[in-house]
């Protein structure tokens, strides 16, 4: 596995964490809403699905089509779930970040993990 595939990008991590946080209710609208509420990041639906498709191709997320509702114009939802390899990738990226943050002290901070 190349280092590019080994570690996740920032937005990829945000998406995987959003899906984990939403559980069974993770689909496009709820993921966008969570990102806007928690980190004030207003992403376009195109950017969201492009990244989700990339994660799916890498095998980090799985998807299934759900029910169609009236407020969606009769169109079905696409639910996402983080796979086991997706969780592994998240862990690797978190550990890598923690390692890099060790012994780093920013101005105005006394210490960092």
């Amino acid at each position: 596995m190349s280092s590019k595939e080994k570690y996740l990008g920032e937005f990829e991590q945000f998406l995987l964490l959003s899906i984990l946080s939403l559980g069974d209710d993770a689909y496009g609208t709820t993921i966008r809403q969570l990102l806007a509420d928690k980190i004030e990041r207003d992403v376009t639906i195109g950017a969201l699905y492009t990244t989700l498709e990339r994660l799916e191709k890498k095998g980090f997320v799985e998807s299934k089509m759900g029910e169609a509702t009236r407020e969606r114009g009769g169109r079905a939802k696409k639910y996402f779930k983080v796979s086991a390899s997706g969780e592994q990738a998240l862990k690797r990226s978190k550990q890598a970040l923690n390692t890099m943050w060790q012994d780093v002290t920013l101005r105005g901070e006394h210490s960092c993990e």
């Binding site: 689909y27 496009g28 609208t29 966008r32 699905y49 407020e71 169109r75 079905a76 939802k77 696409k78």
Partner: peptide, 10 residues
């Protein structure tokens, strides 16, 4: 279908 549905819902 999911993209158009998500946008319509939002």
């Amino acid at each position: 279908e999911p993209v158009l549905g998500d946008l319509e819902e939002a």
